[in-house]
């Protein structure tokens, strides 16, 4: 039975990097193009997941657990972030009955 690192190593490292980068870019594109705050937020989560994926890949590739531990930290913190973020979005929705980020431009110049 092959060890997991060995399985992972069957795919070249560059492919992981490219995949994660693509995911990351998709996340960025999502942030750029969407106007709904929740979807923007989801796009950001996608970016974080791209990071997670890459971290896990590196970690396995190098047989170094610290990368995967980092992934846990990211997930935990992201959860906290989600809690706060959704709270903010709810707060805004209460005030203006909309979560369109394009409307929010009172603060400028």
């Amino acid at each position: 039975m092959q060890s997991i690192p060995d399985i992972i190593r069957t795919i070249p490292l560059a492919h992981y990097i490219l995949l994660s980068s693509a995911l990351f870019c998709i996340g960025i594109l999502g942030v750029l193009t969407r106007r709904n705050a929740i979807i923007v937020f989801m796009a950001i989560e996608l970016m974080l997941n791209a990071v997670n994926l890459l971290l896990a890949a590196f970690s396995s590739y190098y047989s170094d657990p610290s990368g995967q531990i980092f992934v846990f930290f990211i997930m935990a913190v992201a959860a906290a972030e989600v809690a706060v973020g959704l709270a903010i979005i709810v707060m805004i929705y209460r005030n203006i009955q909309s979560i369109d980020i394009g409307i929010l431009n009172k603060l400028k110049n």
Partner: peptide, 15 residues
């Protein structure tokens, strides 16, 4: 003027 107040624009500039 570059400070338009629009988040999408800000992110775009950052990118």
């Amino acid at each position: 003027r570059i400070q338009t107040g629009n988040v999408g624009y800000y992110v775009f500039m950052m990118v």
